[in-house]
Simulated scan of single mutants.
Amino acid sequence: MSEAGVIHDIGYQRYTGPRLGRGAAFGALYQHGLRAAFGLGRSAKAKIFPWLVISVMLLVAVILAAIRSQTGQNLVDYFEYDDSMSWLIIFFVAILAPELVSRDLRSGTLPLYFSRPLRAVDYVAAKVAATVTALWLLMGVPQLIMFLGAAFTTKDGAKGVWNEFLDLLPGWGYSLLWAALFAAIGLLVASLTGKRAFAAGGIVAVFLMTTPVVGVLSVLPSSTTNHLAFLASPMTLIQGVGVWLRDNHETIDLGRFGPIYGIEAVCLITACLLLLLARYRKVASL
């Protein structure tokens, strides 16, 4: 007596809908990364740290706006606000970057991503864009609150509001520079390991290890070394760019080397992004 096989129709069908391609894949990765930055769609535990940082930064902005509206004194301008919040930004990046890239490395989902039209450059661009957007919002929204506090209490009417807006725009540009540099460094470090704790520690270590170097170089007897000392750390590098752009040497004395700070900032961002792309092209080829 022979046994015959039976084929069961369980309803599997071929996909006949539109194939959206690389653009849709990029958009989906970008949207997912931006939501993950603020803990949206994740557990309550995952929302605690990002919203704690956001709350602190918003609270500081509200206090500054209230003081200015009551006393007329501008204790901290838009550039100085970013500088004063630098350590909170670092910790935010240290949590965000591993969440966006280390998780994919550890779970082994990258081969699945790259088996589709999505390319390594698309993946990197989406992650960088999501990180930059999240960091810019982290700084830009509090700056907007500071602007509103000043605009609604100005005594110069429309002219005062317009002048304040002209001060806000460079501040937003400065925030974008902060976001671009910190996103490039944070994602590069996080892409080297699939363990989020190690990635977060590595990101913080990059800034912790470079900051004392600035302190040592700034007290050496050579004035040229003192002026160039702030190139040694990403945080003071960005502050130096801000000082150069505003030609305000009250906090940091750059001497005649201001353009070098701008050049190094551009080169550092470019180098980190190229290394990040090379990292994922290597992963995609495996």
Rank of each mutant, 00 (worst) to 15 (best):
V6T: 13
V6C: 03
Y15W: 15
G17I: 00
R19P: 00
G27N: 09
H32D: 12
H32N: 11
R35N: 07
A37D: 06
R42M: 10
S43P: 15
K45L: 14
P50E: 05
P50L: 09
W51E: 07
L52C: 12
S55N: 06
V60K: 08
I63A: 09
T71L: 05
S84Y: 13
M85Q: 14
L88S: 08
F92Q: 08
V93N: 02
I95S: 13
E99G: 15
E99P: 06
L100V: 00
S102V: 01
D104L: 02
G108W: 08
G108P: 11
L110R: 05
L112F: 11
L112C: 07
F114I: 02
D122I: 10
Y123E: 00
A126G: 03
A130C: 06
T131I: 03
T133L: 14
T133P: 09
W136F: 13
L138S: 08
G140Y: 02
P142Q: 02
F147M: 04
F152M: 10
F152K: 10
T154E: 09
E164V: 01
L166T: 10
D167L: 14
L168Q: 05
L168A: 04
W172Q: 10
A179Q: 09
L181H: 04
L181F: 13
F182A: 01
I185D: 02
L187F: 00
L188N: 02
T193G: 02
A197T: 15
A200Y: 12
G202Q: 08
G202S: 06
I203R: 05
V204P: 05
A205W: 14
A205T: 12
A205K: 14
V206S: 04
F207N: 07
L208N: 11
M209W: 11
M209A: 13
P212I: 04
G215F: 12
G215H: 10
L217F: 15
S222D: 13
S222C: 03
T225D: 10
T225N: 09
T225E: 09
S233K: 00
M235K: 14
L237H: 03
I238M: 09
I238P: 13
G242I: 04
V243K: 07
W244Q: 11
L245K: 03
D247F: 11
E250D: 15
I252N: 11
D253I: 01
D253S: 12
L254Y: 06
R256F: 06
P259C: 03
E264I: 14
V266W: 07
L268S: 04
I269L: 07
A271C: 07
L274A: 10
R279S: 08
R281I: 00
V283M: 04
A284I: 02
L286Q: 14
L286H: 14
